[in-house]
Nucleic acid binder design. Sequence first.
DNA 1: TGGTGTGAACAACTTCACAGCG
DNA 2: CGCTGTGAAGTTGTTCACACCA
Lengths: 213, 213
Amino acid sequence: MKFAKIPSATITRLSMYSRTLERSLAQNEKIISSERLAKLCEVNPAQIRKDLAYFGEFGVRGVGYHVPELLFEIKRILGLNRTWDIGIVGVGNLGLALIANENFLKQGYIFRAAFDNNPQKIDRKLPNGLVIHHINELRSHCKEAGVEIGIIATPGIWAQEIANRFIKADVHAILNFAPVPIHVPPDAPPGFWVENVDFTVRLDKLAYHLTSS
Amino acid sequence: MKFAKIPSATITRLSMYSRTLERSLAQNEKIISSERLAKLCEVNPAQIRKDLAYFGEFGVRGVGYHVPELLFEIKRILGLNRTWDIGIVGVGNLGLALIANENFLKQGYIFRAAFDNNPQKIDRKLPNGLVIHHINELRSHCKEAGVEIGIIATPGIWAQEIANRFIKADVHAILNFAPVPIHVPPDAPPGFWVENVDFTVRLDKLAYHLTSS
DNA sequence: TGGTGTGAACAACTTCACAGCG
DNA sequence: CGCTGTGAAGTTGTTCACACCA
């Protein structure tokens, strides 16, 4: 396929395909059709073929897709054929849960630095061996640890300030769990990216559907 | 405005507007224009006006929107002018973090029941006073506590089974944090709704953008 | 034969531009 | 006058339908 702008939703789906293919692989499925994968992911089969077509031709006509090969290609497309170094700010309940989340590690996301502003927590050692540092030392420790993706798990008030500090520390991507959207400052480097994860939005959607049906 | 199908994205944004308006209110802003609210939420002003137009006319031409009034209306639309009773399965790191999350409580989401399958955890009391029950007792305790929304914070393997049990317990909405999408079974009641929250997808998006830029 | 790859039709959502009104 | 409310235009994303090929 020719060059085209890739829909953001396509990337989201590729990530889902990858997770689903890992399960298929674990069950020793060798070949999968777009129809079967579509059913597992609850999307339209044509959608899957189109999503993949943005990046190449990975299937065999009349047969389907070779599972290990397709998984490999999708992970390569997403940049998951390597590990990623993560730094996190806010070692409260949520922060601890994220650090302990083994799915992240399985996908190659490795926590390399943790920060908080609570003096009681500074210098404490986490189960994974990481030592909590004060946010004032974010820049130096992030640079030293080669942090590439920053996670914000602080109260909303701090989120933007932490984001600015991550930017100064050469961190080019942020996953924000605070319930306040991060604004990308004008001086952010090109290619800087933020994903805002707001649980409350999802609960609100459920409340809406329960209310209006 | 006439009857029209309301985009799912509109509901997502209404939830964001609500959060933003709460902050404006806390800062004693009385009036807000679609332009200003748009800037705070990083959306197009016309988008805001259109989103609101699905539900009525809440502004004053030449002036803007009265903040407390608009907030009230949006919360009413979303069904947040009341409290919602929540049940959660999986009291691990993530589950505990969700239960302790004060944003939920602030929005009117109240945890009424907690379940796990780890015998060590059964009958233990949580900081908020809730006692952890075995998932075999999900149905009776959910009914007794009037649980309306179920949260799944278990490993992926259990997610679908738990969802099925929630359905049997008359729970009509599920927020699923397991990295496996919940399939809505054919025998689910009409109006049943699922939201799948998958952190890994969001990290994968960041990895993709860092890789291809 | 059967499932992929893809142009074309379709559907959904967003933005524009301006009428309408306080 | 200024900002909302909204039809129309524009843009983006999804699904169809079938050519193509192992």
